[in-house]
Design a protein around this nucleic acid. Structure first.
Lengths: 351, 351
DNA sequence: CGACTCCGGTGTAACGATGCACCGACCATA
DNA sequence: TATGGTCGGTGCATCGTTACACCGGAGTCG
């Protein structure tokens, strides 16, 4: 149960607490190698671990980063949380988990709370298009990474965005569908308002235009917003189901449907089956994200993979990087390369 | 960005820091109502928030609980994390997230680390059958909740277990399958070693015995253990797939398969389809847990629901409950009532 | 009237780690 | 021999909060 302090170590090693502190903080040049080794072995023998609270009180910088996600119940965010925690662990950092439930007020409150708890690094997965409300905090020294979002014109200076290249990812999927022989392809999404949806749609259009294909059917959905206590995943799936039903029963149905994310794609698959057709034969369905479910679903979902592990690691590095660069650097985007993952839900059109 | 301390409040309200501290800690009887109101409004006006680090340094008790799960990437644990965080929030507590990746050493190390960081409450989702290694910590005052696990004979005193009643849940499912008319039913699980698997199997057997049905086929699988970097979910699904394939291609195949959890059930569904049969017609498949996927899967999975939200809230209460009861109370189990959720993956046998 | 007991506070020593400001010893240089 | 510059440390004030110890005044009791 610990209780063993830096003073105990200092006494046992026959040095002052300052020397132990110096060693702990990398100022090893200030002592004889022999002293250093003696202190190090004392630390090991005693099983000493510095008290984080005391350290934070003194330095103002806790060894903790904040993660604000809509809901870790969603496997996409769950995966981020998992990898981010793993990355943080390598540097001795811990992750404080916050679920905003897609409530902007709650999201803001969490950020404020984390900041006033002294936390200096936050990964924010915001549902808000603008992040202006945090610019003050960033100016005051907060390191803020916006995840799953690319840079915008009005971004606060100092913000770092980490995201997959949505445009290219969607373009890859567009090309894939075209190359399979599909000519009539629909895009299903909630309201195309958020940054990444816009980009995915744009990339998709680009691929089709290059192939000389007419502007596709586009079905979007207002998306009954926000925190009603459900996962929001179910909502996304329901959106896909409703939209696809409409498309398939309408005139001139598409032979392929590209959903804005995997959850929506799963809803689309349901609708296809409900309409008496088989996914991957009569109708091709594609998603985006490559969440765990994509591989487990039946049929296995063709999708665009986000390199989550690398993205999470990069997000942590951006928070943790020493602040020795110019404090007000350019707002940056870290874009990651998406990867097309072809599975069983897409195939050449039958007719 | 805070920077405003209890001293600022004290000065502005014309009292001593002690009085402010007394107010903050509920010792309101020690002051005039008028004083109290003055201090309270000063706190509001200044937007004062107590510094957690300083408070922890003084009291030794941080406003943080630890959550150790195999991986939040798994939707089951993700849901727990989500609800636990919500419960903690209501009391101003934060949740520190730790992924053990099913590595016992890592699990132990996390617990030690959290404890030596001063954390006094941990929800542990252990893959270990015995929790003896934490009994020392519990004696030293750690409040430890074991989630998804029921009490064992050699449990440390003071441990609180929170779990669904696995036996009854499995019994409900057994009854359901029997009542549909199934007579030959298989149980698919990884090695029946962990507590909850044992219970689920026992409950299932009980239902069959009561119905006068012979001991069912049982397929278990050694389960290639531990942390190979994958989610472990995929592994569970793969287990289901392999096991079901073996069952269905063998002699005298079952008409229904009960999987130990939803992930495994999903693998079973895949195998059924691969064998050219339809889930919910030729073969019924049932799971356990009712993770998000269960509802989204196709066909929608019949399963046993765990009341996650209530269980998470109870886990938090067990951690947070004042220690005024006898410090060494009986080891307790909080068992929750499971609920049978009948969806599309089970039906009466065809023949 | 003296001794007690409340009441409504206040003063202040911790909690454990940090890092600036020192300091003595030794060496080199002029 | 004075001067200055490392080297290898140490002393101690400090971070913000808590809670124990105390205190003056008013009321009560015998």
């Amino acid at each position: 149960m610990a209780g063993i302090t830096i003073l105990d170590v200092a006494r046992a090693a026959g040095v002052s607490t300052s020397t132990v502190s110096n060693l702990l903080n990398g100022r090893t040049g200030r002592m004889l190698p022999e002293t250093r080794e003696r202190v190090e072995s004392t630390i090991r023998d005693l099983g000493y671990r510095p008290n984080r609270a005391a350290r934070q009180l003194r330095t103002g910088k806790p060894q903790v980063i904040g993660l604000v996600v809509p809901s870790v119940g969603n496997p996409y965010w769950g995966a981020l949380a998992r990898y981010l925690e793993a990355a943080a662990l390598t540097e001795g950092y811990h992750v404080l988990l916050c679920n905003s439930e897609r409530d902007p007020a709650r999201e803001r409150q969490y950020v404020d709370e984390l900041v006033s708890d002294g936390i200096r690094g936050i990964v924010l997965c915001s549902s808000l298009p603008s992040l202006e409300h945090v610019s003050g905090l960033i100016e005051d020294g907060l390191r803020l990474v916006a995840f799953d979002r690319t840079a915008q014109a009005d971004d606060p200076v100092g913000l770092v965005n980490v995201s997959v290249d949505n445009t290219i990812g969607a373009e890859l999927m567009g090309e894939h569908l075209v190359s399979l022989g599909h000519r009539r392809i629909a895009f299903v999404s909630g309201a195309i308002r958020s940054v990444n949806r816009t980009e995915r749609f744009a990339g998709f259009l680009r691929a089709l235009e290059r192939a000389g294909i007419a502007r596709p059917d586009v079905v979007t959905w207002p998306g009954s917003s926000s925190a009603d206590g459900t996962f929001g995943d179910v909502e996304a799936a329901e959106l896909g189901r409703v939209a696809a039903t409409e498309l398939l029963t309408g005139p001139n149905p598409p032979s392929a449907i590209f959903a804005v994310n995997d959850m929506t794609a799963i809803g689309v698959c349901r609708a296809v089956r409900d309409a008496g057709m088989e996914v991957g034969r009569e109708v091709s369905v594609a998603g985006f994200d490559d969440i765990v479910l994509a591989e487990l679903y039946s049929p296995r979902l063709t999708t665009v993979r986000q390199p989550m592990k690398e993205m999470a690691a990069a997000a942590f590095r951006a928070l943790h990087a020493p602040a020795d660069g110019q404090p007000t650097s350019q707002a940056t985007s870290l874009l990651f390369r998406p990867e097309l993952v072809v599975r069983d839900s897409t195939a050449a059109p039958v007719a």
